[in-house]
Design a protein around this nucleic acid. Structure first.
Length: 470
RNA sequence: GGUGGUAUAGCCAAGUGGUAAGGCAGAGGUCUGCAAAACCUUCAUCGUCGGUUCGAAUCCGAUUACCACCUCCA
């Protein structure tokens, strides 16, 4: 029985999809005014891992994630670069796709852009005005937060407390136009020179939260299973989405709200964010860090836990991943001399580990316990592969199982390099001869020579094999 | 001020009542001509104080520290 932690109820709840066997989920994507940083990457990886686990468990997943491609920051950044807002959006949407591909993120079912939904956004706002949940002022339109009785139910904030906080920021002109400080913009009138679209309230652009209400319901219906995003989106973004959507449709918006924890960085253990300026972009990072290592590192931290981004943690993740890859290789090498057949006892032990893995992952995606079972499987495989007599069916079963379990984390195991490199093979042959002649000086010389070329030799009871150094 | 979260070995990190999973690093060992890889063994009493209980890392109270949200942010 799969359980997920629901931010709304602050509890783990049994996951029951609206349609049996199908999961409809929406994950808030980035505002595309820069390369994504590793905090964005964490969110993308967390929810991709969740998606993959659902798929591993046999669910069909419809996964929608948006691009917010117009807002103040987009306008500012485009102006700075001397390009248009759509050009800026194109550039960083492309970059997003490249970066997330490197992290082995499954492409979303749909990746809608806010600016492709302006008409629907305008209609949505008109309906909110008709229902009395919104009001136009001088070309802007604001949401009347007090009108929505449940405002604050997701973030568990008292509306009066929020008001107190909001009223401390009353010195801008926008706030002056609102009926109430906690009201928020659905539509913003354009200033001269700004990108804009026509509307009943004059030329302007959507506010920040409305695009997600419109696009999520467009693709997934008025009510859907899961809505995800970083925990900083709980308030105000998701709170406002609920207010907008439920006022519009009169139906519950989302069944399960899921929020991922932050990436912290440096000795201060501070949240990394674009606004704090202490961020590392994926674009830059993967020039020096293996993307698969980064993926493994982040995917194997439970999504609600904070991640401390440090070099030491990355290094450890790289070793851990290597250990799993080596186990896969160790079993793979034995396929050549394995006999046909299966070992029921070892396969039963493997199945038990898979069952334990599923138990762990079913508990709100407890990847720490899940991955510990993968290490157990690697050990089981290593021990089996050291037997003098091995069976092919069992080796293949364990290898496939290992690959499947790691696949949930978005890790792809590679096949060992084939032994068809003539140059290396001739040196290995020479070294085998030298060892037979007990000419260890020559044999060590060859091993050293290959090592300098990044080739590691390993002598096993089944012969000498080689691999590339990591 | 309001609302949450976190504190477990050198590091990362599981664990919601019965005498602390897993990984990295360290130590010892097996295998090897020597290595490498692998395997085996070993390494903590759970921020602090008090309470409940036959028994608590796990429940209750207090306390300390750090982080986040309440304003754009994954």
């Amino acid at each position: 029985m799969l359980k997920v932690f629901n931010t709304m109820t602050r509890q783990k709840e049994t996951f029951e999809p609206m349609t049996p066997g199908v999961v409809n989920m929406y994950v808030c994507g980035p505002t595309v005014y820069n390369y994504i940083h590793i905090g964005n990457a964490r969110s993308v990886i967390a929810f991709d891992t969740i998606r993959r686990y659902f798929e591993y468990r046999g669910y069909q997943v419809k996964y929608v994630s948006n691009f917010t491609d117009v807002d103040d920051k987009m306008i500012r950044e485009a102006h700075k670069e001397g390009i248009t807002v759509p050009e800026l959006g194109d550039k960083f949407i492309q970059a997003f796709k490249e970066d997330t591909a490197a992290l082995n993120i499954e492409p979303a079912t749909a990746n809608p852009r806010a600016t492709d939904f302006i008409q629907e956004i305008v209609s949505f706002i008109e309906k909110l005005i008709t229902k009395g949940y919104a009001y136009p002022v001088d070309g802007d339109v604001y949401y009347r937060a007090h009108k929505f009785a449940d405002y604050g139910k997701l973030s568990h904030q008292n509306i009066d407390e929020l008001e107190e906080g909001a009223s401390q920021h009353t010195n801008d002109e926008e706030t002056a136009r609102k009926e109430d400080p906690i009201d928020f913009a659905l539509w913003k009138g354009a200033k001269p020179g700004e990108i804009s679209w026509p509307s009943p309230w004059g030329a302007g652009r959507p506010g920040w939260h409305i695009e997600c209400s419109v696009m999520s319901t467009h693709f997934l219906g008025d009510t859907f299973d899961i809505h995800g995003g970083g925990e900083d989106l709980t308030f105000p973004h998701h709170e406002n989405e609920i207010a907008q959507s439920e006022a519009e449709t009169g139906k519950p918006f989302v069944h399960y709200w899921m929020h991922n924890g932050f990436v912290t960085v440096g000795d201060e253990n501070q949240k990394m964010s674009k606004s704090l300026g202490n961020f590392v972009t994926v674009h830059d990072l993967i020039k020096t860090v293996d993307p698969q290592t980064l993926r493994f590192f982040m995917a194997t931290t439970q999504y609600r836990r904070p991640i401390q981004y440090t070099q030491q943690n990355i290094d450890t993740a790289a070793r851990n991943l290597q250990r799993l890859q080596t186990a896969y290789d160790n079993m793979g090498y034995r396929l050549k001399d394995a006999e046909a057949g299966n070992d029921p006892k070892t396969e039963q032990e493997t199945r038990q580990l898979v069952a334990d893995y599923i138990d762990a992952m079913d508990d709100d995606f407890n990847v720490q316990n899940g991955v510990s079972k993968v290490y157990d499987l690697a050990r089981l495989g290593n021990v089996y592969a050291e037997r003098s007599f091995v069976l092919k069916g069992t080796l293949e079963f364990m290898r496939q199982t290992l690959a499947d379990l790691l696949g949930v984390f978005g890790v792809v195991l590679t096949e060992a390099d084939s032994l068809d490199d003539d140059h290396i093979q001739s040196l290995i042959d020479e070294r085998i001869q030298a060892r037979q002649d007990r000419n260890f000086q020559r044999s060590d010389e060859i091993r050293e020579q290959l090592k300098n070329q990044g080739i590691i030799l390993e002598d096993t009871p089944q012969g000498t094999r080689w691999r590339k150094e990591n």
